[in-house]
Simulated scan of single mutants.
Amino acid sequence: MSSIRTIIVSAVLVFVAATAAQAQQRPPIGLYGSPTDAMIFYVARGPAGACGPGCSDWIAAEGAVQWDSWKRLIAILDRQAGRKLPVVIHIWGASNLNVATSMGRILRDHGLDAIAGATEVEACAGKSEADCFALKRPGGPLDAKVALPDAACDFACVLVLAGGVHRSLAEGAKVVLTGRSIRNRRAPNVSAEQRESLTVIFGEQYRKYLLEMGVEPALVDLVDSLDAGARPFVVPPAEVARLHIVTPP
């Protein structure tokens, strides 16, 4: 199976995070075939204004975007009984960009706001990553606060964030981009020609998606200007606003 069409079915476009992954890896969220550090979702709560004006409850989304992350997002939204909680996004590690766009569409379809930031759970203070994960896994609610993430908002983060009706960064958070690369878990030896073709195809899909979400598609051109091993590029705050990665207050 060597055709471009066949490879598109099984290939995923993966973004190599601009910052290092967590020092401690969490246990897998699923029982079989689920990678470590895959994204988890839980409800968090804080004082009035913790997640914005009049906002005290939110959905924390943290970890790497993997093949089944969109299913877990839908599952937690279904449990909210119609509550439109904002989603606080904290992504690290290599993520599936195609799934990230699916998650962004889910946020938009549900009319939710999105924030790029970290959720710090009070009960996790002094606990190991595994013990903290065990607290989060049931889905909350957990007392917490929105804080500056240790990993910057990368391209996968931006794709999910783009789905928010209102989009913002936690105070001090930055958008940091690096290159993207093709990885095929079923056939890792994808030729250079096929990688180039798929990168172009996926790039056009992301431009269309961002345009639909109200983000300037020129963001993809910025990512494409960076090689996979290039030095991370910190997007200046003025450009974050100009590209409509965030929305006006």
Rank of each mutant, 00 (worst) to 15 (best):
S10I: 11
T247E: 03
G163I: 04
A162E: 13
A162C: 11
L198R: 09
P217M: 12
V190F: 06
P141F: 11
V43G: 01
A170M: 05
A152L: 00
G117T: 02
K208M: 09
S102F: 02
I182P: 03
A230D: 15
R242N: 03
W70K: 08
A192Q: 09
A156D: 12
S102C: 09
R5S: 14
A48T: 13
A170K: 05
R26E: 14
R26C: 11
I29C: 02
E62F: 01
L226H: 03
T36S: 13
V65D: 09
P248H: 01
V43A: 04
T119Y: 03
V88Q: 01
R79D: 12
A125R: 12
E196I: 00
A21M: 06
V14S: 13
T101C: 03
H166I: 02
I245R: 06
D224R: 08
L31R: 13
E122N: 07
D227W: 00
A241C: 02
D150G: 10
L219S: 08
K145N: 04
D131C: 01
C124L: 09
I4R: 11
S69T: 11
P35L: 08
T101S: 14
L142W: 01
V43K: 13
D57T: 13
Y209T: 04
T178A: 12
A44F: 00
L13E: 15
P141H: 03
A228L: 11
A218F: 06
A114Q: 04
A130Y: 11
M213R: 01
V14F: 04
V146I: 15
V146M: 15
S2L: 13
